[in-house]
Design a protein around this nucleic acid. Structure first.
Lengths: 211, 211
DNA sequence: GGCTTTCTAAGTGTATTCCCTTAATTTTTG
DNA sequence: CAAAAATTAAGGGAATACACTTAGAAAGCC
């Protein structure tokens, strides 16, 4: 019997997912979490075998929560995301996750992911696998994409989406206005976008909010 | 026995929700739809009693799909959304929906919503009800918010988020550049935002994408 | 019929973004 | 240690966004 904790900010999703998992005698959902602070406490007290971790959570992302849990716990973490892009899976594995499954997967695939990581192996859902091979086939030499963004660039994006001007961002980080302008220019170039509004649109649609 | 169609772009969500609904002998999920074009065809052929309709869908929103279905079918439609803001519920009811439930509701609330609308009554989830009363208590005279946006302003927002410049938007709608600038200025004023990047961030966080 | 809202448009000025080039310093990686 | 990547910074210029004001025409409402 594999004990499971589900962390997702939408009650209906975590409840229905728990019902479906509990219907299978091999699994038992022992707790829910609705935010990223709660999940860390719950893993400490409940010591589950597997954590199903949504990436988009508050107050900090599932990636950060995964990093923190990996420090003190041996629980296997499976990243859950609305998006299939390999860059997100990469970030989750780097943070210490053992599996990655999109919300576009079937219930069977969730079952397979949970049993696989519980055995100590790693798991990637078929949708993300397909995206990986597509990326390789279409853009073998491509030097663009979310995966190429640096830490500083991500911080800048996070300020831009909140409506801060380049001058305000410069003040925030105590760097020159010109430096911020370079960062913004490089971000647009890497993501092949033409201005900041399409950038904010892109990072929301990609589902990868930093912080 | 109430027959139900589920329309949601995330397979895992619609599958788990269907399993939970089917576990209750009063309901039977007869079909799934993964996009807004499909749901219209399915309602035509399957003639369900109730449609659970996600608002965020492609290629057009659940609001548009609701309008189209209401024209030819007597099926009761329940809006499903990640967000509790009353403005979204209002749009759905205006489009012809009979119920509105957030994805933060419990499974019991979905059950109640389905049985209520099947009887010909209307239903609003408790979370949205609370938001309604909070709005009334906090901002009795407030003249801002998404509900105040006009049709044209929403069209402009949709162009802005895609990265179009004011000049390009003017060309799109065959109106003057100056008119577009006025629209953008009025949008920012109504939503109390200071620039277009925070606008794009806001409309994504609010979960109310037009089109 | 008058009132309100919406959509339209123009003027004028300032602030900000975005493009392009060059380059030094630090950090990371092989 | 050498090479590559990341972060920092500057100058100059074109395009765009944003603030604030005024105002006419059309549609809808009491």
């Amino acid at each position: 019997m594999i004990s499971i904790v589900i962390a997702d900010d939408h009650k209906l999703f975590r409840e229905t997912l728990a019902d479906v998992l509990n219907a299978n005698p091999a699994f038992r959902v022992i707790a829910f979490c609705q935010d990223s602070e709660e999940v860390i406490e719950i893993v400490k007290t409940e010591k589950p075998d597997v954590v199903l971790m949504d990436i988009n959570m508050h107050p900090f992302s599932g990636v950060i929560a995964t990093e923190k849990i990996a420090e003190f716990s041996g629980a296997k973490i499976i990243g859950l995301s609305m998006h299939s892009h390999p860059a997100y899976a990469k970030k989750m594995f780097r943070a210490g996750a053992s599996g990655y499954v999109t919300k576009n997967s079937s219930t069977e695939e969730i079952f397979a992911a949970v049993t696989t990581v519980a055995k100590g192996k790693r798991y990637i859902c078929s949708e993300t696998k397909n995206m990986l091979s597509e990326d390789l086939l279409n853009n073998p030499n491509e030097k663009t994409g979310i995966g190429l963004l640096t830490e500083r660039e991500m911080e800048v994006i996070n300020c831009v989406r909140k409506g801060l001007s380049s001058k305000e961002i410069a003040g925030n980080f105590s760097i020159s206005l010109k430096t911020v302008e370079v960062h913004r220019h490089n971000i647009l170039k890497k993501l092949k976008l033409k201005n900041s509004t399409s950038l904010v649109n892109f990072i929301h649609q990609s589902g990868f909010l930093f912080q």
